[in-house]
């Protein structure tokens, strides 16, 4: 839920990175954190297990500075990917203004991508949000690995809305900022009431 704070002249939006376990959601946020200019970022929180798997969420606040007198702030969240964290995912989606779905391109993860996308649709609905309408970007991650699903197959299977998609190698930062920039723009456009 976008908050428009006239008192502080701020507009605050929430974007959630969603996808199956180990697909690279946290990697996206870490790359953004490590590479975005200092004035745009706040402190990042990663709630992770000892094996560095997200157990509740990661959080990265971004401040894009003044755009027409308003401070444009984006709060990026990730969800934990494993199936049994479904309640956590539901909680994090509350009030989301946009979603980045990170798909794992590896052949043996294909089914999990499909499951996760469906899980996203159901959990969004529980929060009163519609997967057919919410600003959405798909990211095909891990394109540098062997045994990956062709882009065309990913597009045909997962991109049911023909939303923007990006090939990515999040660990190396490829496609990370393109994805972020696009979801930020889409959220802004939707706030204007045309999305």
């Amino acid at each position: 839920m976008t908050m428009i704070n006239y008192a502080k002249k701020e507009i605050i939006c929430k974007v959630v990175y969603y996808g199956p376990g180990l697909c690279g959601k946290t990697t996206n946020l870490k790359f953004i954190y490590d590479n975005i200019m200092g004035q745009y970022k706040g402190k990042m929180i990663a709630l992770a297990t000892e094996s560095e798997r997200t157990l509740f969420f990661d959080f990265l606040p971004l401040d894009f500075g003044k755009i027409k007198n308003f401070n444009a702030k984006f709060q990026l969240y990730t969800v934990p990917g494993q199936a049994y964290y479904t309640n956590s995912r539901k909680l994090i989606l509350k009030g989301a203004d946009g979603v980045v779905f990170v798909a794992d391109s590896q052949t043996d993860r294909f089914e999990e991508n499909k499951e996760s996308l469906k899980d996203l649709a159901v959990n969004l609905r529980e929060q009163g949000l519609d997967i057919r309408k919410i600003p959405l970007v798909l990211q095909w991650n891990k394109r540098d690995l062997p045994n990956i699903v062709p882009i065309q197959t990913l597009e045909e299977t997962l991109n049911f809305r023909k939303v923007p998609t990006f090939e990515a190698v999040a660990a190396k930062g490829i496609g990370v900022f393109e994805t972020l920039k696009t979801i930020v723009k889409m959220v802004f456009v939707s706030l204007g009431g045309q999305g």
């Binding site: 402190k43 990042m44 000892e50 560095e52 401040d63 500075g65 003044k66 204007g192």
Partner: peptide
């Protein structure tokens, strides 16, 4: 030790300067 909480500083510095250029209004916008 479980890395339960990782706070990656430093904190945000004051927001960037307002964009200097005055954007033109897009004609197609409602």
């Amino acid at each position: 030790k479980a890395k339960i909480f990782e706070e990656r500083g430093p904190a945000a510095q004051p927001a960037a300067e307002p964009a200097k250029k005055e954007p033109e209004k897009k004609p197609e916008e409602k």
